[in-house]
């Protein structure tokens, strides 16, 4: 357990704090992974309940939901609140980022009230990593008295901690595919290609794997698979444009989404523009496509 940005590291640190803290405290968790947030929260809840305390899970239903703030200001003496703002904005939107800033600013001026209302309890503020740099300026008083700052950049690598699909509450999967089978399909396609089999099978397997990985919030692996899929479809489209240009366009469109997910926005735009251009040409030459 040597990675300071892993769930395990964060949990080890948080667990000790929950056990040893004796006065009001607040801390921040920054993670892009809702499941990492969920894991930490559930473990915290178990530990607290074992000690006769409660964890109050506060998750806004919408960016303009003020109920979280109201509950925090009412307080629950000696309990622990987990404030879940691990919510990503849609491209071009900033609703959740602004909601986070509003909450921070509003609570920042009520720091002493929070201290009085939560007694010997505490508050965990969880949000996305891209808000780390701005939070000190938005809530300097809360930031100054933070007991802990946890950054969780990766999912837990402990297989026993990998959540089953049933426990992923907020993750609406687009597909029901099994990751292991999709990986196996790629390996099988590679072996076949080595033996003279079709490149198209590998391209398809990679594109499918990329989609599954994206679904499971593995953006880096999803990007790698998607990039390789595009390269293979380019090769195929050069050799047989009628058969594979539309599939190349689809793969480029997917790739754009993967690139955006890892904040390579310029490259994402380029991929998307190439897909659009390809589809325009196809529409012009094949109007019924």
């Amino acid at each position: 357990m040597s990675d300071p940005t892993s769930v395990e590291w964060a949990w080890a640190r948080l667990s000790i704090h929950l056990e040893w803290a004796s006065d009001f405290w607040l801390l921040f968790v920054f993670t892009d992974d809702p499941r990492a947030n969920q894991q930490l929260r559930e473990r915290a809840q178990s530990q607290l309940e074992a000690g006769g305390r409660q964890l109050v899970n506060l998750r806004p239903s919408a960016p303009d939901d003020t109920a979280v703030r109201d509950v925090l200001l009412q307080g629950r003496a000696d309990q622990v609140a987990w404030v879940d703002y691990v919510r990503h904005d849609a491209p071009g939107q900033a609703d959740w980022r602004e909601a986070w800033q509003r909450l921070c600013a509003q609570l920042n001026e009520r720091r002493e009230l929070l201290r009085r209302r939560w007694g010997t309890g505490g508050i965990v503020f969880a949000t996305t990593l891209d808000r780390l740099d701005a939070t000190p300026a938005v809530a300097p008083d809360l930031w100054t008295v933070r007991a802990l700052l946890l950054r969780v950049a990766t999912r837990s690598t402990d297989p026993s901690d990998r959540p089953s699909f049933e426990r992923i509450e907020d993750h609406r999967r687009k597909s029901t595919r099994d990751l292991e089978l999709d990986r196996q399909a790629v390996e099988r396609a590679r072996r076949k290609l080595a033996d003279g089999g079709p490149l198209a099978d590998l391209a398809l397997a990679l594109r499918t794997l990329s989609e599954t990985l994206d679904d499971l919030r593995e953006p880096d692996e999803a990007l790698a698979a998607g990039q390789e899929a595009v390269e293979h479809y380019r090769t195929l489209a050069r050799e047989e444009p009628e058969a594979y240009s539309s599939r190349l366009a689809a793969a480029l469109s997917d790739l754009g989404a993967r690139l955006f997910a890892v904040r390579q926005r310029d490259e994402a735009l380029a991929a998307a523009e190439e897909a659009v251009e390809l589809l325009r040409r196809l529409a012009h030459t094949e109007p019924e496509t």
Partner: peptide
């Protein structure tokens, strides 16, 4: 040294 590095992460803005 890791504790110092963790502190540094809070001042990147």
């Amino acid at each position: 040294r890791l504790a110092i590095e963790e502190l540094r992460s809070a001042y990147q803005g």
